[in-house]
Nucleic acid binder design. Structure first.
Lengths: 141, 141
DNA sequence: TTCTTATTAGGAATTATTCCTAATTAAGTG
DNA sequence: CACTTAATTAGGAATAATTCCTAATAAGAA
């Protein structure tokens, strides 16, 4: 995901209104490494803007999804959002829910190969590994 | 996933009871290529066993998940199940919901690399590509 | 066959997400 | 700046997949 400024400009150019709520949400997503859920984003944003509603958070996330400015990952029946949109692997801790990113150059190539083989028109991808992070894995040995 | 017979035997050996419900569910999962949802499995199983309950389907799927005999894929807020448990890519049609499998030899290697790099203890993986299948993609051009 | 206890059916409870609507406000126009 | 209008919002109700609960049932050991 790009810088806040250029992103705002490009949204405005497309005819979307720039509201404080949208700025706050996008700003937070750009800064965090947390892969937050909608509820988590809502909690954070509320500190600055106590009136912001959860449904606005969902609507803004829908917009960002559509514009491909965020990716989604499902963890324990909850959607988590990630502004790091280049192809990468998400490592999900099944105990604490932490998500780490790992870059992997060959994903693009694999994607192309699978698209060709299957004849699907591929639009987005999702590569996830589930397990236990360094601080949780000791509990499972 | 293995043959029905050996699977049943191994479950019984572990102390689980073999019920007609469980046999029917496992049998269907072994035969289908559909990547069905819990609800879909329930609908199918009910033709043979009208009394089988949805909660039993969910419980059996929990058991199979725990034994790593099925994988799960989230599609449009619904979990879909797959008895094809070796590493592969799932191609998900965003229009009709069809899921196709594509084998890809390098996944195991990528997984090892990411596990090493991140120091996570990796337990399971999920590689998905979303797009439009051959019969749906014409509608999006 | 009898006994024990895992499993089941059925429905209620939960929970993330979507939907609905009146009120608000961004931003274009004069 | 004031005015206009249509997009956006807050808030809560509705939805839907999944989990939970409990009495009744039945698998499998003796």
């Amino acid at each position: 995901m790009q810088q806040l400024e250029e992103l705002i400009i490009s949204l405005r150019k497309e005819g979307f209104r720039i509201t404080p709520q949208r700025i706050a949400i996008v700003d937070y997503l750009l800064k965090t490494e947390e892969h937050p859920s909608a509820e988590h984003i809502h909690r954070i944003i509320q500190k600055k803007y106590p009136m912001v509603s959860l449904s606005t958070v969902y609507k803004t996330l829908d917009l960002l999804k559509e514009k491909k400015l965020v990716n989604e990952i499902e963890v324990k029946g909850e959607t988590r959002f990630d502004a790091h949109t280049d192809e990468h692997i998400n490592l999900v801790c099944m105990n604490c829910g932490k998500i780490d990113d790992v870059d992997e150059g060959s994903l693009k190539e694999i994607q192309n190969r699978a698209a060709k083989k299957s004849k699907y028109l591929v639009v987005k991808s999702s590569f996830e590994l589930f397990g236990y992070c360094t601080s949780c894995k000791s509990k499972f040995n």
